[in-house]
Design a protein around this nucleic acid. Structure first.
Length: 547
DNA sequence: CAGCGCTACCACACCCC
DNA sequence: GGTGTGGTAGCG
């Protein structure tokens, strides 16, 4: 008995000594493996808005994913992490089986489609052929409406079909082109499928359709061609003017556009025998969850895989597996920023009207349009405004865009045109201020064709302390908050953080969660990492951290 | 204890012919 | 009967 006590005492003393040598950090920051590596981020939330708030406070390039965790329950939990970290735990497909990309509202994104039909209700439908025809139609539309060239070789086709149901996703990999957000994607898709919508709305036979139908142009409303082009010059930057111009275009143009294309191939029947579109138009809503490559819906075991007739093949990369590349290309919001990136927009006429009214009603006041003037980073906005305010001239933010992968905020400036390239203000072209949050610098570019021709980019200047320190402060706040939460054993992120941690301290691991629901979710899919081991191959760490 | 963002649908009120 | 409104079941 005494001997047993002695050995146990000795063990405890040894452990105490160990802790003295390597004290636990006061702030818990899980790491990949090496202390010099950036901290890993793996946080779970019950609420989507909490997840997005955390993303905002995060300096790293993180994204929100939704995880289904209970059969026959729509409930999801939200995971915030980087693409690399997610892939690291995701790729084995032993856990995280039912994951969705959350396409944030206002996030620049790719053109994407969800296509489906019931095979039994449509015995003669040829899915492959329908997809090919759709792609052809979409490419034609992109060419006509935006002068964007693409083909089936730019379309990543993922398939999730069963004997019962044809189901696939298309993710367009356009060159240096993306949409402003998924609402604009939806407007574009609805616009170009308008003739087909008409085929299903009318119960009657085609022969007795309203004769007016024949007047419908191929693409009924001209989209807002006011593209935010960072490398292309738009002579008149007066947005109100260009909107007015655009809003007047519609019907006039129809004569120049081609006649009604035959989109009858898009019409399918649902289980009830009712006519529906092959293209699911319900996937273009705010914060839409879009199933990830290699994920299945909960309760089903059919995952999205590269379609056998997929024609998009990413260039092979030396330091990344093919699967990892597939994963990255399949992500709708994984849009790379480039100097020549063009952002396509497609407003509904309603929105156009609303915006035009807004512009008109506020043009004289200092405040401008909501959503256009303020980015999610008010501190950065303030700093940018300070940069474009000199003496009498008070510049403003005309619009902003945030690029997730690069953590780059691009501000289109109005009423202030001083360009560092020419050392004076441009006469008719506006400038841009780019804020690189990752590297904590800002620089200036501009819309002037001459400056753009030489690809002018000013020197980088460090962000002031109040902007770059902002992240640090937020981080501290976050951790303080977490600690409080941990004390209350309510921190939903704790369990997964522990899972990510390689320190194998059982005490830490176990105390991570006593929340029954999360624990269950964790057991189901998330926390099997303890058995995944701590050995992370070096090449993966590099891959993981380089992004 | 705990998802989210819609749309289609229904009931009802109100108006006009 | 046409139109607007408000609430909700249920879909994706």
């Amino acid at each position: 008995m005494t001997r047993k006590w002695e050995t146990r005492l000795k063990q405890i003393e040894e452990r105490a000594l160990g802790y003295e040598k390597k004290p636990l950090p006061s702030v818990y920051r899980p790491r990949l493996s090496k202390p010099e590596d950036p901290p890993s981020i793996w946080k779970l939330f019950h609420r989507q808005d909490q997840a997005f708030n955390f993303v905002k406070s995060c300096k790293e390039n993180v994204h929100v994913f939704a995880l289904e965790y209970k059969v026959d329950d729509g409930r999801r939990i939200y995971l915030v992490t980087t693409y690399a970290q997610l892939w690291f735990y995701y790729k084995s497909r032993k856990n995280l089986l039912h994951c969705y990309e959350v396409i944030p509202e206002n996030a620049v994104c790719k053109l994407y489609f969800d296509l489906e039909f019931n095979k039994r209700a449509n015995p003669e439908a040829d899915g492959k052929k329908m997809v090919a025809l759709l792609i052809e139609h979409v490419c034609k539309a992109l060419q006509e409406l935006y002068s964007v060239s693409c083909s089936a070789e730019d379309v990543f086709k993922l398939d999730s079909s069963t004997d019962e149901k044809f189901s696939c996703h298309l993710i367009f990999q356009l060159h240096d082109v993306a949409f402003k957000d998924n609402i604009h994607v939806g407007n574009f898709v609805k616009k170009i499928l308008h003739p087909a919508l008409h085929l299903i709305s009318s119960q009657e036979d085609d022969r007795i359709r309203n004769p007016m139908d024949h007047k419908f142009s191929h693409f009924p409303e001209t989209p807002l061609k006011q593209e935010i082009s960072y490398n292309q010059m738009s002579p008149d930057k007066d947005i109100a003017k260009s909107w007015t111009l655009n809003s007047k275009i519609p019907e006039r143009q129809e004569s120049t556009q081609q006649s009604n294309p035959d989109l009858s191939f898009l019409v399918v029947k649902n289980n009830m025998g009712e006519k529906h579109l092959f293209v699911d138009l319900g996937v273009y809503t705010r914060n839409r969850n879009f199933r990830l490559y290699k994920s299945s819906k909960i309760g089903k075991c059919v995952a999205l895989e590269v379609a056998e007739d997929n024609r998009f093949f990413p260039k092979q990369s030396k330091n990344m597996s093919e699967e990892n590349q597939n994963f990255l290309f399949s992500l709708v919001t994984n849009v790379r920023f480039s100097d020549s990136l063009r952002i396509l927009t497609c407003d509904t006429s309603e929105n156009k009207r609303k915006r035009t009214n807004l512009v008109n009603s506020t043009s004289s006041s200092v405040e401008t349009i909501e959503g256009f003037q303020c980015s999610p980073y008010p501190e950065v906005d303030r700093f940018v405004l300070s940069l474009v305010t000199k003496n009498e001239i008070k510049g403003g933010i005309r619009r902003w865009n945030y690029f997730f992968p690069e953590e780059l905020l691009v501000y289109d400036i109005c009423k202030y045109r001083w360009c560092q390239n020419i050392g004076r203000a441009h006469k008719s072209n506006n400038i841009m201020i780019l804020v690189d949050l990752k590297n904590e610098v800002w620089y200036q570019k501009c819309h002037d064709p001459v400056c753009k021709a030489e690809n002018f980019k000013s020197n980088c200047f460090p962000l002031p302390a109040e902007v770059s320190l902002l992240n640090l402060f937020k981080e501290e706040e976050e951790f303080t908050a977490d600690e409080t939460w941990n004390n209350e054993a309510k921190n939903p992120g704790a369990s997964a953080d522990a899972a990510w941690d390689n320190s194998t301290d059982d005490a830490y691991f176990l105390e991570a969660t006593d929340d029954a629901e999360l624990a269950e979710a964790a057991e189901n899919s998330l926390l099997s990492y303890s058995s995944a081991g701590n050995e992370i191959p070096d090449e993966l760490i590099i891959e993981g951290l380089q992004e």
